[in-house]
Amino acid sequence: MHLLEISFLMVKRELTARYRGTIFGYLWSFLNPMAFAAVYYIAFKYIVRIPVEDYSIFLLTGLFPWIWISASVISGTSSFENFQALLKTGYVKPIIIPLLVVFTELTHFLFAIPILLIMLFFSGLEINFLNYIFIPILMIFQTIFLISVVTIVGCLSLVYRDISHMVTILIQMLFFLSPIIYPLSLVPSNYLSIYKLNPLVNFFELWRQSFYIGNIDYSLLIYPTILIFILITIAYFVIKKIGDRAVEWM
């Protein structure tokens, strides 16, 4: 419980510090993804002409979870380095750092959900509100997934310098290799089995299904669940080996 309380205060600190003294304050956290969405909308709706109805909603239901993922992993890679002052107090366990990183980005995601709901409401799409019960569950899945990933890359990048460069490239690749700006149906069927190795595919499909498509395919959760267990095991060993001695690597 105390761990959660510290993360709450730290997230508050992060957000307050990040937006204090800026013109739009917290609004920046919406403006950034919205600006991206506008650019992608023009590029992929009018230039590439991806055949998706209600493309703006399609795009945002993919883009908001994506920003949560990419921002967490990118800031998570350098997080152990950035929060070394915190670890050097000697009172907090290293696991607080991934929690803090993922929760901060989760907060941004939570702020974005009302925008999505308003847009969905005005879009005239038929929405099954029962599906929204699934959103918090999906959120928990993705939170745990991200915490273990951030733990692993954050700890490893303390020791191995190449990690942060690799993560940057990987994130850029994953953006185009996940169904964010285009639907899964556009992926050629002979590549589909390889394409689906990317666990983010399942996440994005589930986000869209629960936000507006309906008919949630719960079997999509199997692959992420297995992966989460593997990642947690790795994260556990990484934190035992490196995380608990993080201060020595700084």
């Binding site: 510290i6 205060l9 600190r13 307050t16 204090r20 003294g21 107090t89 009172y91």
Partner: peptide, 20 residues
């Protein structure tokens, strides 16, 4: 060293005390 420069003294007291 655990303080955040952008937060006020009071906010930092809460944060630091929680860390401790």
């Amino acid at each position: 060293s655990g303080f955040h420069p952008d937060l006020t003294g009071k906010e930092n007291i809460y944060l630091y005390s929680s860390i401790l």
